[in-house]
Design a protein around this nucleic acid. Structure first.
Length: 1410
RNA sequence: GGGCCCAUAGCUUAGCUUGGUUGGAGCACCCGGCUGAUAACCGGGAGGUCACCGGUCCGAAUCCGGUUGGGCCCA
């Protein structure tokens, strides 16, 4: 197992994982391995190929991918073909936009072939683009073989299905009123209509009652353009209508309306006086006649004949809305059509495809667009005295879901699937489907099916599956059901495109009259295409084997809008063709909405680009977030913050892994070589607890996955990793792993740790496929080749121990409270505490805790554990007697006060013992007095130095008394910590040995003496001395409490030698250490020594010695060349002090950065701008502040109250000033300012600089600033050293240990400033930006300028805040420009927010990507 | 207007099936701590009218009815 040094950097990791999959053909292998399993048919709901993917699409595919991967791990043979819906209006509309085409006519004049070809190209282009994007998400579907709805085999399956309908007499042509898009000039299915608010006229029209004077039916409509088509009016038979006399000014008229609306009428129309003359039931009005108000303008209205023309009809569908009298235009509404049909009214529909009136309507309106004719008709109504009242209304109105234009209803001939004829079968089929969640099927889908109407499947368009129908003049019809059949057509050319317009040219000879049959030009609704995908993708019926093997689909998942879409179209076509649902189970998922809960919209800029997220935080983080954030069936309010949180979780997992591999690799732990069974007896309770958790987790996750509750599954894993593994188990085992030498106890910990990690990554593999792959490769030594080849783990109940889990829960609960008590008492965890006494509620609690005693004590640094049995009090509680003077006084009068004093001085315990028996006797002045229970009471208090707290199953007492021994131990731990800190500052390898010298006061020496061994062991100090003046490579003055302490640490540099030695077979780390101690501390000395020399070292056998020698002197190898001269790196070599106290340059004429382009030219007199009232603006800004991300309401109010009342003021604010003035934290202040700098980019500011690829810049130009974006600062150092070689003076600021950097990049005498909190000469504290900027200023102002490399921006940002650092960079950049110098800044993209990166990029002249 | 779903801290959410001590987390905020997993992590604090109204019940975030608001689907 390899030791992992890298931090979790998802971008690189995921790139590597993907290239591994590709190179090793992992996907193919995993699939192949599954072939033996039971078939599991998954089918992908095909997305339209109309653009890039959005978060919703990403979520959809991640759900699919996760489940598919899970099923594979279960050993199923999963068919995972993705699909694309490439036909249809969605694409036609896009292509029309691209080509600038506005109407069908233009398409036809430019050529259908050209249009269709463009559609195809467009669809293919986006198919490829979307595929790439899905791959970036780590989605494993069979991308090489997607099903495409445009392919001939697919088209043939569609035709075959249609043929089934035809043969079953479920396909018909009909003359009906349908939703119609006047822009696209086609009929629309119900599923293709979107509703949203539209403002329309709302008019009340007077229909004069035949044979009466000034009497009218009052009819209400929002579509004036349908009035010319009016043929009747309808009332509800049961409603009560009123004839009212309405007086406006001097005129009075009689109106017939719904009685309950009379009052409303008065209000809306400004009627002066209104009274009800009489009332009547709707049914009584039936049969009354009226005169059409526009008879003279619409000739048809004069000719219209029929019993019910222009008469009052009754209909139950009439509502109490408005006047309760509905105008009926049978040609303009489906319900009107039905009513008209019932009453023998003609469906007069004088509107053409483009939504213009035809000549039938009469000269007045012919040729006008119907919606645009509204005002004309309204005017005519007014002029005809027929307009009672006009207003506008905002109501939900249908729109074409592709071009977004309002729909109209008109009558046309269309092809229908007679869904209503087999609705019962569809309902029955739906009942066989298992829906997740259950109500999606039993309520939603069911409801939709119940309301379903016949499905109009024909479209008058171009890019779609052609309707395979040929017709003859004689009425004969032919429905082609396969490509084979099509081949018999006249004009068929082998391999021809079966789309329009080519297919239009094919003809058949009529088998009845021998004339030529020609194709009906319509294409099919795309929903029909998608509906048949489960067999069309199997090329059924052209080939049958595949179908028999797979069909029907086991599981599908799509969003809830597919209730009317794909869920439905599949059900209908499935029942049509096979009389069953094509899918067995469905997961209905939600929609991704904006954080405000609105639908994401690209045009409004509220859509989130998943690719951008993948590129900054990684696909795994996005996937984990999408799955864990919410139950799949709820809507997701997408928050980028959530993705970051997921990223943090993965980082924790990675850190546990890093931690584990560190020790496992040192000890060469081989997980495969240790079976759990074989170390069973070495397991501590801690380990058994962890194993129990592992098995419980497997169970929990499997159960959740099985019912597609992916949120529960992922949350359970996350909780396990973060809470159980990272926060607890790792803490428990840390000391065991740190121990040197072989040890079964350590082995047990390794095994359990490994098992926990392994389980985590196995369960996570379907969710986060990349990070788990990377970890698997190392943890399992690449066996099997990929984590995705592992079987799904079964839970082994024998390891589950609920009691133990409960007990550990208590330990953790108590530990938390101990931490709290320590905090209150100001005793940190390094200082041991004498004992804890736990009073338990039940004996079981004590049993549970005593088993976990070690964990409890070690985790809390407590020396001893004691219990107080259930039901008893702790006997060390200090009991005190409280005399009751009243009761005593009554009996003993003058002695009362004396008795009280005596009682207080006696041992309270003895008194209590007596009282408990009934009484207590006391001698006073030779008399014996008896104290009765009513004379005293007792109280118990905590002994000194004891704190207590209650936990859920009892109370504990923490004895905080310090003794010299405890203090010494605490002190030693403080020293250990400091040495460790120094080792880390020096970037020493964990295995490296050191020499430590310490100087402290008398007390320190006394304290440390007994702990020397422990300190040496913990810090890997081969020598540890208490001296007067410590010397060494790295010296730091510390103080512990009030004790000053100087520590010097020197690296012994034997790591290399150790590594070399342990590479020799048979040489354990222990033996290697012995050799090093025996003088072989360098590789050179190893090479120089003989076999015999080695054998002299204690603990080294002759065999070992031989092996070592052979290792360095392979027999057949020629004498090794003399080793290159060892380069003794002068480590402590202090660079020239960065800050010189002399010759500071005169700061007097510092040129102002970026001279402000203020024009003082004689400007034309400004237009007299009306001064805006300031108040509302301010208030708006406060509201805006409150709405900012990361700013809570009180903070916003504080900022505002502090006087930052405009965006400009805030933008210009200094973060620290703002923080101080407003009394808020710096990070809040930074966020506020950041927002405004970012949100309001200076209009006059520089455009975003050019981004150059890495190797292109070899020559840096003076006076320029560069930002180098790379994961590790390598290119930047390369650029830096190149400049140095050319003789430039350099100045390097880094977060890394300077000596390391200096030798790694061979920086010679270039000053290296260390960003560190260690107080050293050439170090600058990361918070001390002033010192940093001063140092840089001095360097830059030197003669000739130079090059500055700033490596550690992220560190500066985390220690200060972004805006402050940005301002520093701005000033640096300006100075660089003035002083002919160069500024290089290295930054790791993934550590910054994208807008922060933008801001940085904006400040520099060039951005280089490394 | 109808069907379905949703409403819990500033934000995202758990708990609701089966009513029961003090409604849990995460983020953000404030204070503190830890330090060989560490640009990580931990503890504490503050923050809740469980949308609203009514009902059932000894007891309601939870069950029932209604209202309001949001999402999806329809009319």
């Amino acid at each position: 197992m390899r030791q992992i040094d890298d931090n979790y950097s998802p971008i690189q990791l995921e790139k590597d994982a993907k290239s591994f999959w590709e190179k090793a053909r992992i996907y193919e292998k995993v699939k192949k391995a599954g072939e033996a399993g039971k078939p599991y048919y998954f089918v992908d709901g095909p997305p339209y190929t109309t653009g890039s993917i959005h978060i919703g699409t990403a979520w959809n595919k991640v759900l699919k991918d996760t489940v598919v991967r899970y099923r594979r791990m279960q050993g199923l043979n999963v068919r995972d073909q993705p699909g694309y819906d490439m036909h249809g209006l969605p694409i036609e509309v896009k292509v029309e936009q691209n080509l600038g085409i506005k109407s069908k006519k233009e398409i036809e004049t430019q050529g259908i072939d050209k249009f269709v070809s463009t559609c195809r190209d467009y669809a293919i282009k986006f198919k490829s683009k979307m595929t790439e994007e899905f791959k970036m998400l780590g989605v494993w579907l069979d991308w090489e073989n997607p099903y495409l709805t445009v392919e001939p085999s697919y088209v043939a399956s569609v035709w075959w299905t249609l043929r089934q309908a035809y043969d079953k007499n479920l396909l018909s042509t009909d003359h009906r009123v349908l939703p119609w898009c006047p822009r696209c000039e086609t009929a629309l299915a119900e599923a293709e209509i979107e509703y949203w608010d539209e403002t329309d006229p709302s008019i009340f029209v007077k229909f004069p009652v035949e044979g009466e004077q000034d009497t009218y039916f009052l009819v209400w409509t929002t579509t004036p353009w349908t009035i010319p088509g009016n043929l009747a009016a309808a009332v509800h038979p049961d409603f009560t209508y009123a004839v009212v006399a309405a007086k406006r000014g001097s005129s009075e008229e009689l109106l017939i309306v719904l009685q309950e609306k009379v009052e409303d009428l008065r209000k809306i129309a400004g009627i002066d006086e209104i009274r009800i003359v009489e009332t009547a039931k709707g049914s009584e009005l039936a049969g009354m006649k009226y005169r059409h108000p526009l008879t003279d303008l619409v000739p048809y209205q004069q000719q219209a004949k029929g019993e019910h023309v222009h008469s009052i009809l009754t209909a139950d569908s009439v509502t109490t809305e408005s006047t309760g009298i509905v105008h009926i235009a049978p040609g303009h509404g489906p319900e009107d059509f039905d009513i008209g049909k019932k009453h023998g009214l003609e469906a007069f529909s004088p509107v053409d495809e483009a939504g213009n009136y035809t000549a039938d309507v009469g000269e007045r309106y012919a040729g006008r667009n119907v919606r645009e004719a509204n005002p004309v008709i309204m005017k005519d109504l007014v002029e005809h005295g027929a307009m009672f009242h006009e207003a506008t209304i905002t109501h939900r109105y249908g729109h074409c879901w592709r071009c977004k234009k309002p729909i109209i209803y008109r009558i046309t001939d269309q092809w229908f699937l007679k869904v209503t004829a087999f609705k019962d079968q569809i309902m029955a089929a739906n009942e066989q489907v298992k829906w997740f969640p259950e109500w999606a099927g039993s309520n939603r889908e069911k409801d939709w099916i119940q309301n379903a109407r016949d499905w109009c499947i024909s479209r008058q368009r171009y890019w779609g599956t052609p309707l395979p129908v040929w017709k003859c003049q004689c009425g004969n019809m032919r429905l082609v059901a396969s490509i084979e059949e099509l081949k018999t057509a006249k004009g068929y050319v082998e391999g021809m495109d079966v789309h329009r317009p080519w297919i239009d040219r094919l003809t058949f000879e009529c088998d009845k009259c021998k004339k030529t049959m020609t194709r009906v030009p319509d294409v099919l609704d795309v929903w029909f295409d998608a509906g048949v995908c489960s067999w069309a993708s199997l090329a059924y019926p052209a080939t049958k084997d595949e179908f028999e093997k797979w069909w029907p689909t086991e599981w599908i998942t799509e969003a809830h809008d597919q209730t009317r879409g794909w869920f439905y179209s599949q059900l209908v076509t499935g029942v049509l063709a096979f009389n069953r649902s094509p899918y067995k189970s469905v997961l209905m998922h939600g929609w991704a909405l904006t954080p405000a809960g609105e639908a994401m919209s690209k045009s409004e800029g509220t859509a989130v680009d998943p690719v951008g997220i993948v590129n900054t935080l990684g696909a795994d983080s996005l996937r984990l977030y999408l799955l864990k954030a919410i139950a799949p069936w709820d809507d997701l309010l997408f928050q980028q913050e959530g993705v970051k949180a997921a990223n943090r979780t993965l980082n924790i997992l990675w850190n546990v892994y890093k931690f584990a591999t560190l020790y496992m690799s040192i000890d060469k732990f081989d997980p495969a070589g240790v079976r759990l069974e074989s170390i069973k007896d070495d397991l501590r309770p801690d380990d058994r607890w962890m194993l129990s958790r592992v098995e419980s987790l497997k169970k929990e996750v499997s159960e959740a996955m099985e019912v597609y509750e992916l949120h529960r599954a992922s949350r359970a894993i996350e909780d396990f990793v973060v809470s159980d593994l990272s926060r607890w188990y790792v803490k428990l085992v840390r000391d065991r792993l740190w121990k040197e030498g072989e040890d079964r106890d350590k082995l047990a910990a390794f095994k359990v740790l490994h098992e926990s990690l392994l389980t985590s990554i196995t369960l996570l593999a379907p969710i986060t496929p990349h990070i788990t792959e990377a970890m698997h490769a190392n943890l399992n030594n690449g066996k099997p080749e990929s984590v995705h080849m592992l079987p799904w783990p079964a839970s082994d109940a024998k390891w589950i121990d609920a009691k133990l889990e409960e007990g550990m829960g208590l330990v953790r609960e108590i530990s938390e409270m101990v931490a709290r008590v320590r905090q209150e008492a100001n005793i940190n965890l390094r200082w041991p505490v004498k004992r804890i006494v736990i009073k338990v509620q039940t004996p079981e609690v004590a049993d549970a805790l005593v088993n976990l005693k070690e964990a409890l004590l070690s985790q809390n640094n407590i020396k001893e554990l004691q219990f107080v049995p259930a039901g008893e009090e702790w006997d060390e509680m200090v009991l005190s007697v409280v005399p009751n003077p009243n009761a005593i006084g009554k009996v003993y009068r003058q002695w009362a006060s004396k008795i009280a004093i005596l009682l207080k001085n006696r041992p309270a315990k003895a008194i209590k013992a007596g009282i408990d028996k009934g009484e207590y006797s006391l001698g006073i002045e030779g008399q014996l007095v008896t104290i009765m229970p009513n004379m005293v009471s007792f109280s118990s208090t905590l002994p000194p130095d004891v704190a207590s707290a209650d936990f859920s199953k009892g109370t504990f007492y923490l004895d905080l008394e310090q003794t010299a021994a405890l203090e010494a131990e605490g002190f030693s731990r403080e020293v250990i910590r400091r040495v460790q800190q120094m080792r880390k500052d020096m970037k020493l390898d964990v295995e490296e040995f050191v020499k430590v010298e310490i100087q402290g006061g008398r007390k320190a020496e006394d304290f440390l003496e007994p702990w020397k061994d422990k300190i040496s062991r913990e810090t890997r100090a081969r020598q540890l001395q208490l001296v007067d003046s410590p010397k060494g490579e790295y010296i730091v003055e510390w103080s512990i409490g009030s004790e000053p302490l100087v520590i010097a640490v020197t690296s012994l540099k034997v790591k290399k030698s150790l590594d070399t030695l342990t590479a020799v077979p048979g040489i354990t780390p222990e033996k290697a250490s012995k050799l090093v101690d025996g003088g072989y501390a360098s590789v050179d000395s190893l090479k120089a020594a003989s076999q015999e020399d080695f054998a002299l070292v204690e603990g080294i056998s002759k065999v070992d010695a031989k092996r070592i020698h052979e290792h360095f002197h392979p027999q057949e190898a020629p004498a090794p060349a003399p080793p290159p001269a060892p380069s003794p790196t002068p480590v402590q070599q202090a660079p020239a002090p960065a800050v010189q106290e002399t010759s500071a340059p005169a700061p007097a004429q510092q040129p102002a950065p970026e001279p402000a382009p203020v024009q003082q030219a004689p400007a034309p007199t400004p237009p007299p701008a009306a001064p805006a009232p300031p108040e509302p603006v301010k208030v708006d800004f406060l509201a805006e502040l409150k709405g900012l991300d990361g700013i809570d309401v009180p903070t916003a109010e504080k900022i505002f109250a502090a006087g930052f009342t405009t965006p400009e003021l805030l933008k210009a604010a200094h973060v620290d000033e703002l923080a101080k003035a407003a009394g808020i934290s710096e990070s809040s202040a930074s966020k506020a300012v950041e927002h405004y700098i970012y949100e309001a980019p200076r209009a006059e500011g520089k455009p975003k600089p050019e981004i150059k690829p890495a190797p292109a810049v070899t020559e840096l130009e003076r006076s320029f600033s560069y930002l180098v974006e790379e994961e590790k600062p390598e290119s930047s150092y390369k650029l830096f050293t190149t400049a140095l070689e050319k003789g430039m003076k350099g100045y390097c600021i880094t977060r890394n240990y300077p000596a390391k950097i200096r030798s790694k990049f061979d920086l010679k005498d270039t000053p290296v400033i260390w960003l560190s909190n260690v107080g050293r000469e050439n170090a600058i504290r990361p918070k001390d930006l002033e010192k940093l900027s001063l140092a840089l200023e001095q360097f830059l102002s030197q003669q000739g300028g130079g090059i500055v490399l700033l490596d550690g921006l992220e560190y500066l940002i985390t220690n200060n805040n972004f805006i402050t650092v940005l301002r520093l960079i701005q000033s640096l950049r300006d100075q660089v420009a003035i002083n002919q110098s160069i500024l290089l800044m290295a930054v790791n993209r993934s550590t910054l927010e994208s807008h922060q990166l933008n801001l940085l990029e904006r400040e520099v002249d060039y951005t280089i990507t490394g």
